[in-house]
């Protein structure tokens, strides 16, 4: 089976078009999607082409390469993940129990949330840290590849209809208060308290091409690398490793592994199910 699979059939026209589009975007604008996971990227590109009424990927390429505003729309379509406040409550519960006690020993805590998309994780973590009484000592760096997405994250506005689920998530995540104190309802939207952003720096950063920019005590990169192929995952893991202090904490998504990290051996597992690791070498 493995051997059969290793022999790729000749690429379809669609695959050739995708390669050309990604190569073009890289050479024209510097955004490198060439090592994204083919299957999910294809889906996103095809959805984008359909929504923009482009008949082929080549037609899309014509627009994107000649008009920067099309690139921005493309980037937006490629960088939106549909997450939730306190997605995977068990992760946050483990973070409270296992990680917060370690963080209490630091006078000042730098946290990097890599690939925050619409910002759900930013507010989740800020709430958790505030309740644990250490938010004032924290500086959270929330980064994403896409500026317009970051702007959305910064606004902290979510559909009101989601608050029921978010409240349930919050309780399961070990929430200590009434969840409604963290947002204001206005019409059909919920706006999160601005003070939750007091210690958050929103910044554009491309995991595929940008370098490390600080040393952190905690790095969370959850459900971001699932969009990358193994090679790019390895590259990003190296970047994260380099950006962690000794004994720093790394958190990845519930269905991700460190198998494709060149530094797998440098981490101790803190919580298996929550995918929380500690750098020990």
């Amino acid at each position: 089976m493995k051997n059969e699979l290793a022999v790729s059939p000749s690429p379809s026209v669609e695959e050739i078009e995708m390669d050309l589009l990604l190569e073009g975007i890289y050479r024209q604008y510097g955004f490198d999607f060439r090592n994204y996971a083919l299957s999910s990227l294809r889906r996103r590109i095809m959805n984008f082409a359909r929504n923009e009424r482009a008949s082929t990927i080549s037609a899309l390429q014509d627009r994107i390469l000649h008009d920067r505003s099309w690139l921005d729309r493309f980037l937006f379509a490629l960088s939106v993940n549909v997450s939730a406040i306190f997605r995977d409550p068990a992760f946050y519960l483990a973070f409270r129990k296992e990680v917060v006690p370690m963080l209490r020993t630091y006078p000042f805590i730098r946290i990097w949330l890599a690939g925050v998309s619409m910002g759900e994780e930013v507010y989740s973590l800020a709430i958790l840290l505030e309740e644990e009484g250490i938010y004032d000592r924290c500086r959270i760096y929330a980064t994403d590849i896409n500026e317009p997405v970051l702007k959305k994250a910064k606004e902290g506005i979510y559909p009101l209809e989601l608050m029921q689920t978010y409240t349930s998530n919050y309780m399961k995540a070990g929430g200590l208060q009434s969840f409604s104190r963290y947002y204001t309802a206005a019409y059909d939207r919920a706006i999160f308290k601005a003070s939750l952003r007091d210690n958050v720096v929103f910044a554009q950063h491309n995991l595929a091409t940008d370098a490390s920019f600080n040393e952190f005590h905690v790095i969370l990169c959850r459900n971001v690398m699932i969009y990358f192929n193994r090679e790019l995952q390895g590259h990003v893991h190296h970047l994260l490793y380099e950006s962690l202090v000794m004994f720093g904490i790394l958190g990845v998504g519930a269905k991700e592994t460190l198998r494709f990290s060149p530094h797998e051996q440098a981490y101790d597992e803190i919580d298996k199910a929550a995918k929380l690791y500690r750098r020990v070498a």
Partner: peptide, 26 residues
């Protein structure tokens, strides 16, 4: 497939995504 992810097939391995639900399903 795990709950709350999409499951995709690549040539030699699987991939997961957290893209929007399709027909209300993820």
């Amino acid at each position: 497939c795990p709950a709350n992810y999409h499951l995709l097939v690549e040539r030699s391995h699987f991939a997961l995504s957290t893209d929007a639900p399709v027909l209300h399903a993820r």
